[in-house]
């Protein structure tokens, strides 16, 4: 991270040299009229001097908040993860350096790897399902007449806008063992189709069935965003391109892969990254579905970290932070490519 910032910074400094007046040339805009140059030169020098610090003053409030709330805790997180640090250390004695003991014990623990694998698998399923379903619905909305697609879009908004906590409660209730709607429907459906014994099936014990609900909640809440984004993207593709593809004899499948996908590739890349980040950190839904920290079969990384840091007795901040560090590294690795692309693509200009 520091490295990347440094290189970028050097490049920036170089370009700053070309424009020492302190103002940026307008991106892609017409040449600055000469008059503006003159007008700036005519400004009193005191104003210019004051302005050199201007940008720093402007970013100062944001930077201060970000440092206190995000930057410093991220550094702290790494430090804490390298120390024996529990609730007891808060009140008596200070945390002790423990030469990577947390990492050694986690990485050699079969349980941690199970949680790790579950996290990857659950996230992957969520992301893939969300992307596929969202894209299909986006295409569908594009095909439907305007009035009907508006109605469906409003429905999507409802799913999207529901607070995560509320959504989790509703799904817990729908899948609830007794009087839950899903078990009732499965019981009513013919046994040859869905099997029997649903009337008192408990969805919340086994990891597989609990994760099924978890995935369902997350997909339900995220696919509208993908669908609406894809729809917006589709509207920007000129109709002639599809015409051309059709003349070439392409069916819907081929025209999707030869026209739609290439055109929307940046959009898809972006949505994909956002989905990965969002789905990877899923916590609240699990908090409601698992209802506590006693069922260790259903932990995901974020949940495990929280459990160690707050629910374990005594709270083990060091261990919780070690898990959090691993989680953060994982997210940054997954998104590294994306971050690099954004930095390259003139995001920084």
């Amino acid at each position: 991270m520091a490295n990347r910032a440094n290189t970028a910074n050097t490049a920036d400094t170089a370009s700053t040299g070309a424009d020492r007046a302190g103002a940026e040339p307008r991106r892609g805009g017409p040449e600055r009229p000469a008059a503006s140059h003159r007008s700036r030169r005519e400004r009193p020098s005191s104003s210019r001097r004051r302005f050199r610090y201007g940008p720093y003053l402007l970013i100062l409030p944001s930077l201060a908040v970000l440092c206190v709330v995000l930057v410093w805790p991220i550094i702290q997180m790494v430090w804490i993860s390298l120390h024996s640090y529990t609730l007891r250390h808060l009140n008596s004695g200070s945390p002790e350096w423990n030469s990577f003991a947390h990492y050694v014990s986690i990485l050699s623990d079969g349980y941690f790897w199970r949680v790790f694998a579950n996290t990857i698998a659950v996230t992957a399923i969520m992301v893939v399902l969300t992307m596929v379903l969202g894209t299909l619905v986006g295409l569908l909305l594009h095909k439907l007449p305007r009035w009907f697609s508006t109605i469906v879009a409003v429905g999507l908004m409802l799913a999207w806008a529901t607070p995560v906590l509320t959504a989790s409660f509703v799904y817990r209730w729908m899948f609830w063992t007794e009087r839950g709607l899903v078990n009732y429907l499965l019981q009513v459906l013919p046994d040859w189709l869905v099997g029997s014994g649903w009337d008192d099936y408990n969805w919340f014990i086994d990891a597989a069935s609990l994760f099924t609900i978890l995935i369902l909640i997350v997909v339900w809440q995220s696919f509208p965003f993908v669908a609406v984004s894809v729809l917006a993207g589709l509207k920007s593709i000129p109709h002639e391109m599809y015409e051309a593809a059709r003349v070439d004899g392409a069916g819907p499948w081929r025209s999707f892969w030869s026209v739609t996908f290439p055109m929307l590739r940046p959009l898809f890349a972006l949505i994909l990254i956002l989905q990965i980040i969002w789905d990877f950190r899923v916590f609240t839904q699990l908090f409601v579905l698992a209802n506590g920290f006693q069922n260790r079969d259903v932990f995901l990384l974020s949940y495990y970290s929280y459990q160690q840091g707050f629910a374990a007795t005594p709270a083990n901040y060091g261990m919780g932070s070690a898990i959090a560090v691993i989680m953060t590294v994982l997210v940054l690795v997954i998104t590294a490519y994306h971050i690099r692309m954004m930095i390259r693509q003139g995001e920084l200009r």
Partner: peptide, 10 residues
């Protein structure tokens, strides 16, 4: 069967 996994609250 539905009490499996639950506590007395159910």
């Amino acid at each position: 069967q539905s009490y499996v996994g639950e506590n007395e609250l159910i």
